[in-house]
Amino acid sequence: MKLLVTGGAGFIGSNFIKYWFNKYPKDYIVNLDKLTYAGHPSSLKDIVGKKNYNFVKGDICDEKLVDKIMGGIDAVVNFAAESHVDRSIIDPDIFVKTNIVGTTVLCRQAVKHHVKRFHHVSTDEVFGTLKLTTSDKFSENSHYDPRSPYSVSKAAADFVVRMYLHTFGLPITITNTSNNYGPYQDPEKLIPRLITNAMDNQPLPVYGDGKNVRDWIHVDDHCSAIDIVLRKGQPGETYLVGVNCEKYNIDIVKTILKIMDKPESLISYVPDRPGHDRRYALDSSKIRRQLGWRSTHDFDIWLTKTVEWYQQNKWWWRPLKARAESIYKK
Rank of each mutant, 00 (worst) to 15 (best):
L3Q: 00
V5M: 00
A9C: 15
I17E: 02
P25A: 02
D33S: 03
Y37E: 15
Y37V: 15
S42I: 13
L44C: 04
I47P: 00
K51Q: 08
K57L: 05
C61T: 02
C61L: 01
E63D: 11
E63V: 09
M70W: 01
G71F: 11
D74E: 06
E82Y: 05
V85C: 04
R87K: 09
S88Q: 03
D91N: 03
V96N: 09
T98M: 04
L106S: 02
Q109G: 08
K112H: 10
K112N: 11
H113Q: 02
F118V: 00
L132M: 12
D136F: 00
S139Y: 03
S139D: 05
N141W: 13
S142Q: 05
D145V: 07
S148A: 05
D158A: 05
V160P: 03
V160R: 01
H166M: 14
G169T: 08
L170H: 03
I172R: 05
T177Y: 14
Q185L: 14
E188K: 04
E188L: 11
L190I: 09
N197L: 08
Y207N: 13
D209C: 12
K211V: 11
D215I: 04
V219W: 09
D221I: 03
S224T: 09
I226G: 01
I228T: 14
Y239S: 07
N244P: 06
Y248P: 14
K254P: 11
T255E: 15
D261N: 14
E264I: 13
Y269N: 06
D272V: 09
D277E: 15
S284C: 04
G292A: 03
F299V: 02
I301N: 06
W302R: 03
L303E: 01
K305T: 03
K314I: 13
L320E: 00
E325D: 15
I327E: 12
I327M: 14
